[in-house]
Amino acid sequence: MKHITTTLKLFALLMVVVGFIYPVAVTVLAQLFFPEEAGGSLLYDSSGDLTGSALIGQPFSDPKYFWSRPSATSGYPYNPLASGGSNLGPTNKDLIGQISNRTEILKSSGIRAPVPSDLVEASASGLDPHISLESGLVQISRVAKARNLDEETLRKLVLEHVEERQFGFLGEQRINVLKLNLALENVK
């Protein structure tokens, strides 16, 4: 019996500490020191409208944009309310069919084989904002043609948008597709 009252009191106190005080304290500190990051790294256009988050990918299929990775989110690609991967196993015929189809589409859009894997294989989150440098480079000629731009100008733009390994050694070299495409809109 003694244990029961102690349980009730201690649980209630610890719940207040870790379930309310702790998250609220972290929120206050986060909003104080890193307001943009805490708010979702949101991107706004010149008229102040929300155009996305630097961390969340968007789907592109128009030849005049650089394309993101395939996304397996349910409903439609890059649906942030349904984050997740395809969960298809490596020998699943559906997966092989999908990768084969995507490879064909990329080839017919003017990309010569071999195709970089991240452009035909779905990400884990379905919201991956990045592609590899190779995947950026192989799309230059298509985008250049669609926009009537010089390939060399685009190449420079792509290289400007390369994010190197963090501190020079952590993670992978990558390109943020949304940021690259937003910059592309301003190239004359």
């Binding site: 395809s86 092989i96 970089p116 894997s117 294989e121 779905a122």
Partner: peptide
């Protein structure tokens, strides 16, 4: 995945992985 490599795909096997982490991460 050798089955995928045969389709003319190059690079690490990235199905269900994120570019920023790569294979190692």
């Amino acid at each position: 995945n050798p089955i995928v490599q045969k389709l003319g795909v190059t690079g690490s096997y990235m199905e269900g992985k994120e570019v920023r982490f790569g294979i190692g991460g």
